[in-house]
Simulated scan of single mutants.
Amino acid sequence: MKLYHALLLEDEKATRHLLGKAIKIHPELRLSAAVGSCEEAIIVLKEHQPDILIADLGLPDGHGVKVIAQAKQLYPEIEILVVTMFDDEESVVSALEAGASSYLLKKQAFEELGDAVMSTLRGESAISPEIARHLIKRFKKQDEQHIPQAINPLTSRENEVLRFIAKGYSYDEIAASFSLSTNTVRAHIRNIYRKLAVSSRSEAVFEATHLGFIDLKE
């Protein structure tokens, strides 16, 4: 059984202990480090690559988005799960645009952290219901702007993969649907990120929908 290594960034000691415990008891997860500041997290990230970063946003020495962006710069394929009390649209959008794939509020994370981490590692997105509403509002705003459709740089297969991502399919499910290997699906997704100049699944869906490359209603 493969073990996935997690880096936990949470400044509140009691919360860090509870979240760390939830990671430790999961049979497929190993807690590489648990830190309480942006500075500590960046030091750990520079020393080794975890499979997933679990990050709070409100930290004593800065905003967690800074760490998310740094993690994605160092390791483009790292998965990132935000666990925070911040439920405003600005925080949600900034975290997703920086590279987060999942976003949970702490009240939900205490009970569902292990499952949320594994879902994120499988290429899915764990999103609290309150956060999903912010995303729907953002899509509606984009639709209302009536921006002319740009030239689509994606291949037909990349478009198909992106549609499946938008519908919440995991990498393994997409691979099975197209009779591809999971590594081939990951290669398609890397190409999508490069062509759309994005760094996460959520941001790719935002950008492609915004530009008219995919239609979430299909």
Rank of each mutant, 00 (worst) to 15 (best):
I52Y: 06
V44H: 02
Q70R: 02
Y75A: 03
E28L: 13
A71G: 04
K46D: 12
D115S: 15
V35W: 00
L96F: 06
V65C: 13
V44T: 08
E97M: 09
Y75H: 09
L59A: 10
H48N: 15
A71S: 05
E90A: 14
L104M: 15
E90G: 03
P76G: 03
P129Y: 02
A71L: 04
H26M: 06
A132Q: 11
E39W: 01
L9D: 09
M85T: 07
V117W: 09
H17T: 13
T120S: 14
D61W: 07
I25V: 15
E90T: 15
R30S: 06
F110H: 10
E130G: 15
V92I: 11
P129A: 02
I42L: 05
Q49W: 00
L105R: 12
K46V: 01
L18P: 00
E130N: 10
F110Q: 05
V93G: 04
A132K: 08
D51K: 08
V65D: 06
K106D: 03
P76A: 03
S32R: 05
I43E: 13
R30L: 00
G58Q: 13
P50H: 07
L45W: 04
A55D: 09
H48G: 13
V65A: 11
G99P: 07
A14F: 10
L9Q: 08
G99W: 03
L29S: 05
I127T: 04
L19M: 12
V82K: 01
E47V: 12
I23V: 15
S91H: 15
L45A: 06
L29N: 04
L113H: 12
I43A: 13
K107T: 14
P50L: 10
K106P: 12
E97G: 05
I52L: 14
A109F: 14
A100T: 09
A109H: 14
Y75I: 06
D87L: 04
D87I: 04
H26G: 09
R122C: 11
A41L: 07
S94C: 12
Y103D: 09
I52K: 05
V44E: 12
H63I: 09
A55S: 15
K13I: 11
A41V: 08
L104V: 10
E89W: 09
P60N: 10
L121A: 07
Y103M: 10
L18S: 12
G58F: 07
S91W: 14
D115N: 15
L105P: 14
V67N: 06
L96V: 05
L45D: 04
G123H: 07
E97R: 15
M85N: 08
E28G: 04
L29Y: 05
V67S: 08
A116C: 13
K21W: 04
G64I: 09
R30E: 05
P129G: 03
S32H: 00
A95W: 11
E40M: 03
G20K: 06
V93I: 15
A95F: 13
V65F: 10
V67E: 10
A132S: 12
L74E: 00
K21S: 10
E79S: 12
E28K: 06
S32C: 00
V92P: 04
Q108M: 15
E10S: 07
H17S: 10
S91K: 03
A55Q: 08
P76H: 07
S101I: 01
V82H: 02
G20F: 10
C38M: 08
Y75R: 01
A41N: 06
I78Y: 07
M118A: 05
E77H: 12
M85L: 11
A95N: 09
V82G: 02
A22V: 06
E39L: 01
Y75M: 04
E47S: 14
L81P: 13
